[in-house]
Each structure stands twice: as structure tokens, then as C-alpha cells.
Design a protein around this nucleic acid. Sequence first.
DNA 1: AAGAAAAATATGAATTTTCACCTTTTTAAA
DNA 2: TTTAAAAAGGTGAAAATTCATATTTTTCTT
Lengths: 148, 148
Amino acid sequence: MAEGDESGFLESYTLFLMAMASANVSAEFHRIAADQGLSVPEWRVLACLHDRKAASVTDLARLSLMEQSRLTHLIGRMQARGLVDRKRSSRNRRNVEVTLTPTGATLAADLVAQAKAHEKAAILDRLGAEDTRVFHDLLRKLMADPAG
Amino acid sequence: MAEGDESGFLESYTLFLMAMASANVSAEFHRIAADQGLSVPEWRVLACLHDRKAASVTDLARLSLMEQSRLTHLIGRMQARGLVDRKRSSRNRRNVEVTLTPTGATLAADLVAQAKAHEKAAILDRLGAEDTRVFHDLLRKLMADPAG
DNA sequence: AAGAAAAATATGAATTTTCACCTTTTTAAA
DNA sequence: TTTAAAAAGGTGAAAATTCATATTTTTCTT
């Protein structure tokens, strides 16, 4: 059997390709976030709240791809830095509503603008409009929980 | 301005879609890895070495999407658990060659088989062969470092 | 060939994340 | 309606990761 016959499992393992592509493209933007003093998880939280104004800890955890208790710790630090606020929901007193402070909101808006610019350069300009659409559709198909 | 007009930045932010799709699909398999007592980073290292027999710490870090010093620490733990071995390369004595132990190799082979089965169910059966090909092509395009 | 610069890995302290469990509040069942 | 079960968050100690830096070896420059 010749040397390169099996040619490697990873090279065509979809989960690896997804993780690698995601990590590579994201790393470009994460440098931008780091310049504003934000870690990746922090940026994710800001981006989520930019969209939704307020969210419960659990929702935020799901959206920002973190485990709940990790998010709780993170929110604590972000609150201490004056980026977010936290208060019990009046409707359901188990829930905690997380919101952006004015400082946080400004920073979030700023970063979101830069994210859009980066996305254009890193994705749209590389793949083109049509392929980008196709790409989004495929990703959305995979995001839907099969067990849902 | 109506309520849902802006419809959210994240919902169509490619980097978010990529991270979310990757996290969701991968989580399914990571449960399998966890059943064998492996964390995600550990599984990644085993998978890389399954492909390449031996790799330097730096190569392994790049392939397994980790920062070098994180990988060094991880390899130390995996070595203590008897999954990998480590020795200075004779060619270039700066390099350290990481290899699988027999135990590690068995575990890796086992997991890779399960990964292939999972991939079939989670990707191929969901997207179909043609779309999977298209998906891979798009991912590969994005993996290539634009600054390369 | 010396010395400077770069490359590969290791190290350890500081920070972050994980894990298991606790409390409180809401929902469901008997 | 009591109790039981589930859902949402928080906590703190243990474990993992990050960050800056040290060491060794190789590669470049002049």
C-alpha cells in the first residue's frame, strides 16, 4: 500500500473543516476585538446584547456558545468593568436580565460595525454573494438541532 | 420603525453561523468522546496523531487549533495518562516529536471510527452527498489563510 | 565564524473555566 | 393544595488555559 493512499482522516472530516475554518476566520476578527480590550467570550456577549437589548443568563449562554456557569462568572467580571448590568426579572423571578450599560452599548455598536466590515472583506469578497448565500443556508441547516 | 425590522446582526453574521453550526454539530460527537473519558482537546490531539503517526508540538498545536503552550500542558497530562509519548527529534533538536502509545493508538482508532459514523449521520445524511461536497469546498476556501 | 535573530518548546503565576452542588422560584401532579 | 420535579442562577474549589518570559537550538547576516 502506497504511502499517501489513506490521505488522512482529518483532511475531509467535516467537523474538523468547520472548526478550522471557523477558528481561522474568527481569529482575524478576534485580533480586532483584542485591540479594544475584549476577549472572545466578552465580544460574544456584547454582540448578543447589541441585538436583543436584554437577555436571561440562560439565553445568553446558549447564544454565546458558553456553559451557564461560565457565563455567570463572565457576566460578573463584565459587570465589574461596567459593561453590563444585571437584575432579577419581575415577571419570572428565577430569571436574571442582563443588559448593556451605556458604555457597553457604545463599545458593542462600535465592534459590530467593525465586525460587519471584516465580514465583508473576509467572507463576501472571498466567496462572492451567491456562494455566501449557499454557505449560510448550509450552516443554518446544521445549526438546527436534529433532536429538536 | 416596526419591531423586527433590523432582525438582528447575529442571525446573518457568517462568523456567528459558523461558530454556532460547528459548536452544535461537534457537541453531538463530543458526548461520544466524553463517554470514552476524553475532553475535546484530547480527542483533537488523538485524531491528529492518528493521521500522522508523529508530529511536533507546534504542528500539533496548529492542527488541533490550540495555542502552543496550552498544547504543551495538555500533552504533559496525556503523557501522564499513558496516551502519548514525547521525545526530542534527532534531526532538529529544537523539535519534540509527539507520538501515540499503543493504548493511545487503540483509543484513537476507535474514536475515529465512531467519528466517521457520526459524521455520516450528522452531515452526509442531512445534507446529501452533493451539498456536502459544496460545503467542504467553501470551508476549504475559508481555511486558506488570506495573508498566506 | 561570530553574533544577532528566529524558531521550538517549556515554565509558572495569574486568570479563566469546569464541575458538582446549593438555593430560590415556578410548574406539574397527586 | 401539598408535595414533587423542573428550571434558573449562583458558588467555590479544582482543573485547565493564558500570558509573559526563559532556554536551547538553528538559521541568517556580515
